[in-house]
Nucleic acid binder design. Structure first.
Lengths: 139, 139
DNA sequence: GTAATCCCTACTAAATCGATAGGATTAATA
DNA sequence: TATTAATCCTATCGATTTAGTAGGGATTAC
């Protein structure tokens, strides 16, 4: 299941991509428009900021803005930040590999083989999709 | 993340596919060979039985057996039984569709579009993979 | 009748998720 | 400079899910 965190995060990014002029966008505006609990969203955007996807400006008239063009923000990046590893098992994860306790030999493991295929096909989608696709903006 | 339940279930099915002669295979044998907690596995195989993937024989020399040829057991079926819906959000699930509380219009939802693509690509893998592929048996 | 096996229900500890609370810090502006 | 509006940070909470255990009932081979 996709977590609410990721769902909200994607919606928020889409909103920001669509509403970006010169001014940063406030959490409260996004929360209201997208029906997301404001305090919860606060934490999500903070995470995206720490990961380098968003920038922020504090104080009055502050808010969040994209640090790259929507077309340069890949879903691989966003999903990894919000949802964690793309692979369904650590033993096929590219970025967070871990050996299984059980499994004496990975190459003979039936689950391993299947999960590599799933990972690759999902990765293909995420690598081919940017925030520009989600938000229908051209940049 | 793939649940242990699903992982164990797949390993068990693979084991049964490889070890099937005329005799049913016992939970205890699978558990020992695949390093799975025996009582936990018991419940998993029961689930697979109720779903019609496995058959069982009670009493001495009883055990579990496949109800179809490995090549006829699709991963779509197994994954749905063990892991639940393949879609990451209910609003793109083929078998368990549910509307989102938020989302006034699905067709305009950026998350929706992305998750349909993920679902389709994952589905493609599961539809193209059978237990025979996992277990390297020909049947 | 006994041992081996599946079948069923209930319980538990730990982790995760979704959300809230409360305030510290920063910056614009009146 | 005081006020206000924002981000930033930490802690907490209830509900749910996960992974597993416990204990026994029912069935069958021998």
């Amino acid at each position: 299941m996709l977590s609410k965190k990721t769902k909200y995060g994607l919606k928020a990014l889409t909103f920001i991509a669509r509403n970006e002029g010169d001014m940063p966008v406030q959490v409260s505006k996004i929360a209201k428009s997208e029906q997301i609990p404001s305090k919860f969203l606060e934490g999500i955007l903070l995470t995206l900021k720490k990961a380098g996807v968003l920038g922020s400006k504090k104080g009055k008239h502050g808010g969040y803005y994209l640090r790259k063009e929507p077309s340069e923000i890949l879903m691989t990046e966003v999903m990894r930040v919000l949802e964690g590893p793309i692979a369904m098992v650590p033993c096929v994860s590219l970025n967070y590999y871990e050996k299984c306790d059980d499994c004496p030999d990975e190459h003979k493991c039936s689950v391993h083989k299947l999960m590599i295929e799933v990972r690759d096909s999902t990765l293909k989608v995420f690598r081919n999709t940017t925030l520009a696709d989600l938000s229908n903006t051209k940049r």
